[in-house]
Design a protein around this nucleic acid. Structure first.
Length: 492
RNA sequence: GUCCCCGUCGUCUAGCCCGGCCUAGGACACCGCCCUUUCACGGCGAUAACACGGGUUCAAAUCCCGUCGGGGACGCCA
């Protein structure tokens, strides 16, 4: 147990509470990961709670997409709730707060113009005339059916200071006079986020609320609600925000699919790499480790090591992924066994429309393992293994770069054809035969290999020649060399 | 506007709490060199930061104050 909490001694209970209003975005994913890490590091319980009190904006598709994203990450949770199924509790708690005189009815019509003079001077604090309504007037208007929102009666003029100690940001305090009379219940009777969230956190016995820093100032309101609920508040830990290169908070609206978890998945990020990247944004093990396994991260994770400043996710128009994320992914790819990597690669080959058997993929995997940073790059990196017919050759590429000409290329291919007809197609035999061929032609190995490589792979940059040819097989290699020769000849 | 938070290389960060070991460390990216049949991997190297101004102190990235800059919250959204 690293963090001393009010509930220290008991096993911690944390929650991840996304609101289903779109795809799972990377900021939410990170919050989820931090909650998971905290729970698993401390032998606690992770609760998943769908904060779906906004009927207007919630969609089933969003719920699906959130679960899809979470499942992809592969981090398990222990309990699951839906706020919309707990409305009775929320209303009961709102009434209890009202009964204590800590809240009042606000009959101001919904969506009333908030304008006024408030903009010129500080923040809005409450609608005039409502806070002071007598209980009798309030009851009369309520029973007559006039709609109202329920607002918290925030202490005024008492110099009351709201305080809490944030596990990340330290001591926090704010004058109650600066907190507005926030809503608990909407005029349709539904709870607001603040009420539902706190009522549920209390009811679910949440001990630590780990969430984005955008909630830091909301916490003062939550303190008031917990007080109204007569429940000691949980411990809070706010996470620095993930921001775009322009410094603004990452948002679905402004930044689009580049902030969606599925974008990373579809491009071929490994979940462990994605997790590794995300937890390095705002947290560090305080040593020089960066490439870490989930287990290593879990063991090292503490709230004390969380930073306080926002972290930039470095994406651009041209490249949606942070270079460091890509690098980490490449590292994780190389850490996989060939068998495991080939399994991960299979769906990407299938999606590219290649007829790729597991055996073929297994043979190809070691040849592209060091050459891809994202799983999604595999089909392009290995296309010539699967394509029955290569795209037309670029004769210029067939010609050795260092002072060669078409005739030389032709001679190489011609001779290679003869040699290859009888050579065993294993690495050592090919190595020996082709090097000898180069020597025979009076060429350097590099010069002689280029025409062959281009003939066989269709391009200059490819995996090592001998291994590649071994996988391709004699028949295909010879056929392609013949085609390459034809393309050189027809050019002349 | 009011309140809250933040400010070390382009980016992620170590160091800050407990001043000296910091002529500020690591990583990614970029550039160069090496390895090499191409590409990639790997190795080596280079460029690059304590926002600014005042204090306190023998000594400040580290403590204090101010300024500036950035972000967040101020909804019957979450």
């Amino acid at each position: 147990m690293t963090d001393s909490a009010p509930s220290s001694g008991k096993s911690p209970r944390v929650r991840f509470a996304p609101s289903p209003t779109g795809f799972l975005h990377v900021g939410s994913a990170r919050t989820f990961i931090f909650n998971w890490l905290y729970a698993r590091h401390n032998g606690g319980t992770l609760v998943l709670r769908l904060d779906d009190t906004d009927v207007e904006r919630n969609t089933d598709a969003s719920v699906q997409s959130i679960f899809e994203g979470l499942r992809w990450l592969g981090l398990s949770w222990d309990e699951e709730y839906k706020q919309s199924e707990r409305l009775a509790l929320h209303r009961r708690q709102a009434e209890a707060i009202f009964a204590k005189g800590l809240a009042y009815r606000d009959f101001t019509p919904a969506h009333a113009d908030p304008g006024e003079q408030s903009s010129s001077q500080g923040a809005w604090l409450f609608n005039p005339g409502m806070r002071e309504l007598t209980r009798e007037d309030s009851d009369r208007r309520a029973t007559s059916g006039e709609p109202f929102a329920l607002r918290y009666r925030v202490p005024r003029g008492e110099d009351r200071v709201l305080r809490f100690v944030d596990a990340v940001y330290g001591e926090q305090s704010k004058l109650a006079d600066e907190v507005e009379d926030f809503a608990l219940l909407r005029s349709d009777g539904n709870p607001t986020y603040h009420l539902a969230s706190c009522a549920d956190d209390a009811d679910l016995r949440i001990t630590h609320i780990i969430r984005g820093q955008d909630h830091l100032t909301n916490t003062f309101k939550h303190l008031l609600i917990f007080e109204g609920l007569s429940t000691p508040p949980p411990q809070f830990a706010h996470l620095p925000l993930l921001v775009a290169p322009d410094g603004a908070k990452l948002s679905k609206r402004r930044h689009g699919p580049v902030v969606s978890v599925t974008t990373y998945r579809d491009a071929g990020f490994l979940p462990q790499a994605f997790i590794n990247f995300l937890c390095l944004l705002g947290w560090s093990p305080k040593d020089d480790r960066e490439f870490m396994s989930l287990d290593e991260i879990r063991e090292a994770f503490t709230l004390e090591n969380v930073n306080r400043s926002n972290a930039v996710v470095n994406f651009t128009e041209e490249d949606p992924f942070d270079p460091k994320a890509v690098w980490l992914n490449a590292e994780h790819i190389r850490a996989l066994s060939v068998e495991e990597l080939s399994r991960q690669l299979a769906p990407f080959f299938a999606q590219a429309g290649f007829e790729a058997t597991p055996e073929k993929i297994l043979a190809v995997t070691p040849l592209i393992r060091e050459r891809i940073k994202l799983l999604g790059e595999a089909p392009a990196a290995a296309d010539f293994f699967f394509l029955p017919q290569l795209a037309p050759y670029d004769p210029a590429e067939l010609i050795p770069s260092k002072g060669g000409d078409a005739a030389m290329a032709l001679r190489v291919l011609q001779y290679a054809q003869e040699v290859l007809a009888t050579t065993n197609f294993d690495h050592d035999s090919l190595d020996q035969a082709l090097r000898a061929a180069a020597a025979h032609l009076g060429l350097k190995a590099g010069q002689a290999f280029q025409p062959i490589r281009v003939a066989v792979c269709g391009r200059k940059n490819a995996p090592p020649l001998f291994e590649t040819m071994t996988v391709l097989g004699r028949e295909l290699c010879l056929a392609r060399i013949r085609q390459a020769m034809e393309s050189l000849q027809t050019r002349e």
